[in-house]
Amino acid sequence: MSARRLRAVIFDMDGLVLDSEPTYVHAWRQAAAELGFPLPDSFWTDLSGCSGTMVSRRLLDRCGLGFDLERFQTLSGAYWLAHVQRYGIAVKPGFFNLLEVLFQRDLPFCLATNSALTAAQKCLANAGLADRFPCIVAGDTVSAAKPAPDIFLRAAAEMERPIQDCLVLEDSPIGIRAALAAGAPCIFVPSLKPADAWAAEHADYLMDDLQQVADFISAG
C-alpha cells in the first residue's frame, strides 16, 4: 500500500504502542515460580501477541492439567498491578510523533488489541494514554481474537473504512497473521530482536519503530 491510499490506521497495543510485554513477563514469571513452575525466558517471549486464552492454553500444555490456572491468574494480576503502579508503562518511541502526523492528515485511527477491554484501559491509563484512542476494539469484544481477523474487521467497521484501506501496525507474528487474514495492508514493527522471519517476509513493510512509520506516512 502506498501512503497516499491510506484512509485509516489500526494500532496494536502491547509491544507496539506500549512497552508492556516486559511487565507481563515479569508478573507471569513470578507467579509461575511461586506455584513451583520456573519456566525459561524462551517460553515467555514466545507468548508475544497471544490472547489471555492462548496464554492459559500454552501454560496448561507446558505444565500439565494440574497447573492451578486460577491461582496463577490471581498472583500474576497482583504482581503486574504492583509493578506498573510503581514503575508505570513506557510508551514506544515515535508514538506521539506518529499521532501528530495522523492528526495533520486527518486520518482516523483505532486501537485493536488481544487484551481484554478492562486490561487495555488499565494499561493505557498506567502509560498516561487513557484518552488517546477514540476507538478500542479488544479481544473480549469479538468472537475470536488474533490470529483470527475479527478484531481488525471490527476496527475498520468502527471507523467506517474498508479494511483494505486501513494500515495495520503490528509487532508480533500473531498480529501479522490476523492482518493478512483480514485483507489489510500491514507494517511489522518487531518488539523482539531478531525479527521473526515469517512476519518480516509476509508483512507489506518491515520498520524499526513508530518514528519510521510516521516518516513513511508523512512522506506519502
Rank of each mutant, 00 (worst) to 15 (best):
M1V: 11
S2K: 12
V17F: 01
S20H: 00
W28L: 05
A31R: 00
A32N: 04
A33S: 14
P38T: 10
D41H: 13
F43C: 14
D46I: 06
G49F: 01
C50M: 14
R58I: 06
L60N: 08
C63W: 07
C63E: 07
G66T: 13
D68F: 07
F72L: 10
L75I: 09
S76Y: 04
G77F: 09
A78G: 13
L81R: 15
V84Y: 01
G88M: 11
F96D: 08
F96R: 08
N97Y: 07
D106L: 09
A112T: 02
N114F: 01
S115C: 06
A116L: 05
T118C: 09
A119D: 06
A120E: 00
R132Y: 06
R132I: 11
F133W: 05
C135M: 13
V137N: 04
V142L: 11
S143L: 14
A148M: 06
D150R: 04
A156I: 04
M159F: 09
C166K: 00
L167C: 04
D171V: 03
D171P: 05
S172I: 02
S172Q: 02
I176L: 05
A178V: 05
A179K: 01
L180Y: 02
A182S: 05
G183N: 11
I187M: 09
K193D: 12
K193N: 12
A199H: 02
A203W: 02
Q212V: 10
F216K: 03
S218M: 07
A219T: 09
A219I: 07
